[in-house]
Simulated assay, not measured.
Amino acid sequence: MGRFLESHVVLTKAFFSSGDVIADRRADYARMLAEGGDHAAAAELMDQALEIAPEWAAGWDLLGNFHEKAGNVSGAISAWRRLEALDDDGVFGARLKLAAHNAGAAGEGTAVSYVEALFDQYAPQFEDSLVGKLGYRVPEMLDAMVNEQMAALGIERFAKAIDLGCGTGLMGEKLREKVDFLEGVDISAAMIAETARKGIYDNLQKAELVAALNARRAEADLMTAADVFIYCGDLRPVLAALVPALKPGGLVTFSLEAHDGEEAIFLRPSLRYAHGVAATRDALVVAGLEVLRFETAVLRFDRGAPITGILVLARKPAVELTAANDGASGGHVAA
C-alpha cells in the first residue's frame, strides 16, 4: 500500500451533516476556528452543536479531535467514549483513539471499518501528500531488496506477484517490469479506483487482507506489503495467512514502523502500530519463513522527525517441513 496518514485527519465519510441546519452551521464555524488554531474555542462551539444533535457520530469525532489539539486529553477521551457508543461499525476509530491515550485496549487485529473509511477519504490526495511532502521511499527500498535477491538467487522474472494493500500503485509501478501477472489487493474502493486508472495491475481485488490471503493456496512467487502491516497490529495472524498463499520458495517483502522496547507492538498516537524488532524476528521464524534481509531504515518523516522502520525480505522454504519429514520416513517428496 505504501501509505501514511497524518494523525489529524478527521473522517467525514457519510456523516458530514448532523441533519440539523443550526448544528451544522456551528460545526462549520468550529472547523474555521480550528483551522485558525483556536482549538479550545472550536471545541466549545462543537459542544453547542452536539447539544442540538447529540447522536451525531462525526460531531463527537470532531469534538474529540478539537479537545486533543487544545491539550484537553480528558475532554477528548470523554468525546471518544461517546463516539464509540454511537459508531457500531467503528468507522471513526474511537477504540484506537482511546487506546492510543491509554484509555482502552486496541485489540490485535485491523480496525477494518476505520482503515477502509480513512483511505477512501484520503485516496485523491494520497500520493501528493505521501511522496511530495513526507519523503516516502519505502517502495524504492523494498524493490531494491527484491532486485538484489533476484540476482543472488538467479531469478529472472516472477510468474505471479501480489501487492498487498496496493493503494495507488506506488509499489506496483516498481514491480511491473519483472512480473508476468501482477495482482493488487486493497481494502479501499477509492484506492482501487485510483490505481485502476493507471493500468499497472493485471487484476485488482477489493478485500480485507487476511480474508484475501486465506482464499489462496500456493499461488504467488512474490508478495509485497509496503506500509500495510502498520495498520494490522499482531503480525502472527497475517503471516499465518500469508505463508500458505506463497508458492514453495516464494518471497515476501514488507515494511513496519519499529520500536526498541520489549513489547511486540504498541499503538502510536498516529493510530499506526509500531512493532518490536525482536518480536518481529520471532514472528517470522514461527511462521516458518527464512529471513534473507532484515534491516532498519528511515521510512519517511513526520512533522520533520524521521520515522524508523524495519524492512524485511523472507522466503518460504522450497520444501515444506512436513513433506521433508514424510520423505525421511519413506514418503514421496515433491520438489
Rank of each mutant, 00 (worst) to 15 (best):
K247G: 05
E208Q: 13
T296D: 01
L142K: 00
K160E: 06
K97H: 12
A58D: 10
G104M: 05
T168H: 07
G104H: 03
H39Q: 06
E35N: 14
A105L: 11
R293A: 10
E6V: 15
A40V: 08
P269R: 13
T296F: 02
I162H: 01
V243R: 09
A318L: 13
A23V: 09
A106L: 03
L222Q: 11
A323R: 05
A314I: 06
F254E: 00
M191K: 10
L86A: 12
A111R: 05
V179M: 00
L239E: 05
G90L: 02
A111M: 03
I52L: 10
E194W: 04
E177H: 14
R26N: 03
A159N: 10
T195Y: 01
L33K: 13
A79N: 01
F15Y: 07
S129E: 13
S17Y: 12
I265E: 11
A278F: 08
A225Y: 12
G276T: 09
R303P: 00
T280C: 05
L235Q: 09
K178F: 02
S129Q: 14
I307P: 02
V73N: 04
K133D: 11
V285R: 14
M141C: 02
A212V: 07
R281L: 15
F4Q: 00
I265A: 01
P139G: 04
A274Y: 07
